[in-house]
Design a protein around this nucleic acid. Sequence first.
DNA 1: GCGTTTTATGGTAGCGCTGTCATTATTCTT
DNA 2: AAGAATAATGACAGCGCTACCATAAAACGC
Lengths: 341, 341
Amino acid sequence: MSRKRNAHRSPDMPTLADVARLAGVSEITASRVVRAQGPIADATRTRVLNAIAELGYIPNRAAGSLASAGSTLMSVLLPSLSNIVFPDVLRGIHTALTQTAFQPVIGVTDYDPLVEERILVSFLAWQPAAIILAGLHHTPTARRHLEHGRFRVAELMDIDGDPVDIAVGMSHRQAGYDTGRHLIQRGYRRFGYAGHSVVFDDRATARYEGLCTSLREAGLSLVAEHRHPGPSSTMAGRDSLEILLATEPGLDVVVFPNDDMAMGGIFHCMHVGITVKQQLGIFGFNGLDIGQAMSMPLSTILSKRFLIGKTAAEKLLESRERPEEKTIINTGYEIIEGATA
Amino acid sequence: MSRKRNAHRSPDMPTLADVARLAGVSEITASRVVRAQGPIADATRTRVLNAIAELGYIPNRAAGSLASAGSTLMSVLLPSLSNIVFPDVLRGIHTALTQTAFQPVIGVTDYDPLVEERILVSFLAWQPAAIILAGLHHTPTARRHLEHGRFRVAELMDIDGDPVDIAVGMSHRQAGYDTGRHLIQRGYRRFGYAGHSVVFDDRATARYEGLCTSLREAGLSLVAEHRHPGPSSTMAGRDSLEILLATEPGLDVVVFPNDDMAMGGIFHCMHVGITVKQQLGIFGFNGLDIGQAMSMPLSTILSKRFLIGKTAAEKLLESRERPEEKTIINTGYEIIEGATA
DNA sequence: GCGTTTTATGGTAGCGCTGTCATTATTCTT
DNA sequence: AAGAATAATGACAGCGCTACCATAAAACGC
């Protein structure tokens, strides 16, 4: 019989046809039970469910996806997993998807738009229901694919720009600006900035620019800045502050692109005996748990990473069709006064 | 013509047939070019590649997966993403997969074997080439699925047990034991333990047991222990140490299940003026960057999370067939002396 | 009571791709 | 130079499922 092709399959992996036969219904009815779709008599449903349990049937999603020209996959493209920000976003996404049929498929771009484009294309091959990426900045090819596809798109983290479909995040430029205003108001005047390689993280750059703008408006400017070559880390923050202070000892506050580096800055101060806040203010970004667990909690800005991921995933599930109107959701942020600046 | 079913598809999404027609070859030949499989004349390959570029063809992996009864997906089931350990593992997996056709699909189980089982089944529906999970402990149903499937399986983190196929990790029991030996040798006698809810993380429990064993062998035992209800965090570590010292002020060393909590312990000491190491030793687990960036680096054990993920993914790719022999890879660990114990 | 709607089920024809086998042109042996 | 191996391509039949339409039975309306 027509089992000749089955040689390459697992021994007797049951199919929907097997389930249907055992339950004494047609394939399509069994299919409807599996998908909980369309009207099914209770008795029928029970028979099919029993057959499924008895055979240990597992639906073949590749076949389903092919037949229905769609899947329950949600592609998630993140710049990095080292930066705790993105695991937090991912948790939010996961939380929103937990009770649904959707599954996240993740890819990591290393902050490289070309890598993002490559991974995007390989994800499109699975006909995902939705795509989540970070930022509003993509290659022209990637943007074209995003615009023309039959799937929802959410661009996370930043909202300063023109999204393809949905943007969820906050204004990083504004956050940087507010950082400057906040610190100026608290009396700081001689600003330093200890960042990391600019090829990483557009958002950090936007905050930096916002900071500079606020300083300029107040008739100030950055007295000194140092950029650690390579990605951000606590050690990078510690080293950067040391270098910064060696070249410019008269700073009264240093802004870091994130809490990890700011923590490193605090460790440097502790090491060389600088009184944080009195002698030197330290300001971070993200509002990580660890910074708030210090007896002297870190002054920083709380970004709502989990909320961003969760909101985006929920919004994407609202409708399969892309609406006419683009959606921009501002999850905002909060300045945490803390005790370090 | 036979386009009636196409109504529900994207307007003119090109298929392999379109590519083949444009290139003037058969579908199979075009398919072979796409998959870089079988002998193809250079001229033919070029024509097909041009046609692909011209049409913007993206292969449909659902169709490919269905036809070949296999996919290039690698299912990854992790207990959590909050615990930095697992993003690290994921980075390792991702690194190993970057230059291959394989893509990771992740699921988060929240340390719940039943959730693990549920997600596992939904992943199996995509006919993954391999499955990665954490730990060697699964539900009977999950274990049965893992054993009978036509895919490779890697169980990560722990190696104290009987894997389905491949295990990559370290002995957590031994690590706990060595922690005890190390601290006893350094003169500590009055041990405290500040952990978290036991329903989380089998590995932490194994380390705890190893620690107790080493104490027992030395004629000692835990003088006091406290378990924070809920998951681990820096704040949990800080609070737990406070509670622990309130009930038992005479401790000379406290062991934490991980660096996050140990950092919290150090913050508590700083807050109340306890001299770490002289008055109270603090010992963690994981060897996180942030702990080593302090001027007084944390005494801990370096677990090789990235290496575990990378090694596992590489090993899985070595052969599609599950070999007769099970593989156990011990990635080991290193005691970091540090300055806190 | 007779049309009309609703509920429950089934037949058929693909979805887009690849495994299998077959075929022809080309190169290699001895 | 005859046979054997190799390279390059193609025809065809599904993979397992679901969209689409059709049908039959039950419930409803007035």
